[in-house]
Design a protein around this nucleic acid. Structure first.
Lengths: 151, 151
DNA sequence: TCAAGCTTGATGCATTTGCATCTATCCGCT
DNA sequence: AGCGGATAGATGCAAATGCATCAAGCTTGA
């Protein structure tokens, strides 16, 4: 197996990406903590479940959407359920599985998190780049995604 | 305190940034694990110490450079020292402090990690965007950085 | 039909992280 | 000199994560 060297441009872009993404996450997490709200991961799950509607989602469907390992989803859902933000329903045609649905209080929590999360996004991204630049950034990032996106 | 809403462009760019950065980190960590190498955080510290040269760095200087909390640095250095990759020296003019210096075996480890890390960057960034695009990406990300960069 | 193997989700155990706090030293001020 | 507060670094304890494995249910094929 031959190892390749990255170009200087690739290294610079990588370093910026790593540093910036961690800074943004950290600041947002700090804002959430300061408001007594749960971490970002909770929002991701509540968001996906809210979008899924009454039908809910199977835990394994959440794995790819929130980029967590199977056990990560399992335990995060357990915490959300313990807090009454989601509920687990047995699924008729598969005795192993369950369907997870967001509860009213889960929807409420999602809104409360978004008030802070959204403000953080507005401050950290919206205030620093124009709409055109944001689209360009999203486009470039889309090409790094797996699977790559070409919009 | 009035909460603001982010623009759709900002939300899209944010979502892409979050997802892509996590995917890239995950793939790179997987590659390191597959080679029996330590995680990315180890590289960051070894890299900073290698750049610092024989003079080494004080632990508190690493905090901002590697974006870790104070206790994170303290414990990561303890692990690196236990593995013989760095050494801690008392510092003459401050009895509280210490200077951390990379060892030859630390330099070697840094090289071994880079062989995999660099290849990962080349594959995940270099292969997907042109040099021009990488520069543009770095420029946009630089504006999101704290403190913002205007190069 | 039923054994072999796959999928879904949970969990025991070790490592890592986060938070709060601690010790030791240093600095500034009176 | 000596007190009060700040700074450097470590650490006890709780929570979260990673890894391996498990149990239960499903599917396939001889």
């Amino acid at each position: 197996m031959t190892k390749r060297s990255p170009s200087p441009e690739a290294v610079t872009a990588w370093a910026r990406l790593m540093r910036v993404s961690r800074q943004l996450v950290e600041k947002t997490e700090d804002a959430l903590k300061a408001s007594g709200l749960p971490p970002l991961g909770w929002y991701d799950v509540l968001h996906e479940l809210a979008e899924a509607g009454e039908g809910g989602l199977r835990p394994f469907e959440l794995i790819d959407r929130v980029l967590l390992a199977q056990y990560g989803v399992s335990r995060l859902l357990a915490r959300l359920e313990a807090d009454g933000l989601v509920e687990k329903l047995p699924v008729s045609d598969d005795g192993r599985g369950q369907t997870v649905r967001i509860t009213p209080s889960g929807r409420d929590m999602r809104r409360r998190i978004w008030a802070v999360y959204g403000a953080s996004i507005a401050e950290l991204m919206g205030d620093r780049l124009s709409a055109k630049e944001l689209e360009m950034l999203a486009g470039l990032l889309g090409r790094l995604r797996d699977p790559p996106v070409t919009d």
